[in-house]
Computed example of a mutant assay.
Amino acid sequence: MAEAGWYPDPAGGEGYRYWDGDRWSAQTQLRPGGTSAAPGAGHDPSTPIVVKGSSDDDEDEPRAGLWSQVKGPVVIIAIVLVTIIALIWALMQLGVLGNRGPGPSNPTEFCPAVTDGNYSVDPHPRDGRVYGGELSYPQLGAPWSAPTVDGRVPFGRDVQTQTITIEQNYRPGQNWVASVLVGELIDGDGFQSPEAGMDMVARCIVGAFYGDSPVQREDVTRRPMVVDGREAFMLEMHLSFDVRGLQAKGETAIIIIVNTSGSKNSIYYASIPDNAQQYLPTARDLVNQLRVGG
């Protein structure tokens, strides 16, 4: 067996390869390095020599360069997505998005304060109907009360109502009632049409009749309609609440705004507590019996 040393490349290539007595080196050189000088200054010829700038480093450098290029846009997209999600959440909390209408609050900052004008009552015919503004319905008999004035209706004047006491003295001196009423709506911004004024009137009614108690509103029916040949818009909604001392935890409310003449509008409003649902058909039947005039 040949001694260790440099020999002409047995593969036929130019130069010499080193034989260590067991295997040929991977390295070659043009001139033999002497019988005692092994390639690589003591490096095992069988061990691959990694040279700086080899393929491993070449792979890492493009990867680092690619991340530096996309890092900025990725961060911007993440910020935009977080902002959009936060905005959607805020709009849902305010009730702007979603199909359940306003959230559990009664905003009244844009609603008019009750004034003495709300209590004024115009003269009307005594023909067995209850009149408010230019709208009327057939007067209801017992157990409904006789028609009385109601000054709590936002934007309202000349309001007449009939009620049934459902819970008496749920708080000292306060009764919870089922009610129906008609009245005139004072002209103002948002009343160019019955539909245009509906959302504002509905929100203000919730704020005026339920005070600071949180109310969850769910719109059941929203549709245009015709009342006695006049343009009108109807909203039926269910209101959920938890009023201290009150057994009822919700009620159905019906609002109809009617363009009674020119720029004037009148309102029909009914509220029937959940623990008095036997009176809801009556409130709905009156919708078809509304008349304009008087």
Rank of each mutant, 00 (worst) to 15 (best):
G103A: 15
S213D: 12
T221N: 09
V220P: 00
I88N: 09
S145K: 12
L135V: 10
A270L: 06
V50M: 12
G207R: 08
I88M: 11
D285E: 14
D187W: 06
E109I: 10
P48I: 03
Q278M: 13
S266N: 03
F241P: 02
G98H: 05
H124W: 05
D56E: 13
N259E: 12
T163S: 15
N175I: 03
H43Y: 13
D285M: 09
M200Y: 07
G21T: 06
P154H: 02
L280T: 04
Q69I: 13
M200K: 15
P102I: 11
A11T: 13
G40D: 07
T282S: 10
P172T: 09
G173V: 02
D20A: 06
A90N: 14
A86Y: 05
R129W: 10
P123E: 09
S240C: 00
L185D: 08
T83D: 07
P32T: 09
V96C: 03
P224S: 15
D274K: 01
D274T: 05
G245H: 01
R222D: 06
C111G: 03
R222G: 01
L181R: 14
S120P: 00
E59Q: 13
E251W: 00
V201G: 00
I164F: 01
L235H: 10
G250R: 04
L135Y: 03
T165Y: 02
V51E: 14
V130M: 09
Y18G: 01
N118D: 15
P281M: 08
I77L: 13
Q277M: 13
E59G: 02
L87D: 13
C111T: 03
P273N: 06
V206T: 14
Q247P: 00
I79D: 03
A38C: 01
T35F: 04
M234N: 12
N288M: 03
G188T: 15
P39V: 04
A90P: 00
A64F: 04
Q277I: 10
V287E: 14
M200F: 07
Q278D: 14
L286V: 09
Q168G: 12
L94N: 12
S120C: 01
M1Y: 08
V149H: 09
D57T: 12
G190K: 06
I77W: 08
P112H: 04
G245P: 00
T260Q: 06
G5M: 02
S213I: 02
D150T: 12
V149C: 08
S193P: 08
D56W: 14
Y210F: 15
N275K: 05
E167C: 02
Q216E: 09
A41T: 05
E195I: 04
D285G: 04
Q216V: 00
L290T: 01
A38L: 04
E3T: 10
L30K: 11
A178F: 09
I79W: 08
Y119W: 13
M237L: 11
D22Q: 14
V206I: 13
L246Q: 04
K249C: 00
P123W: 04
I267G: 06
G101T: 09
A37H: 11
A2R: 13
R291W: 01
T165H: 01
E195L: 06
P45C: 00
G15E: 06
R244F: 09
R223N: 11
S271P: 00
G156F: 01
C111Q: 03
I77N: 03
E231S: 12
D60H: 10
D199R: 14
I49K: 11
I257H: 07
G293E: 01
G12M: 07
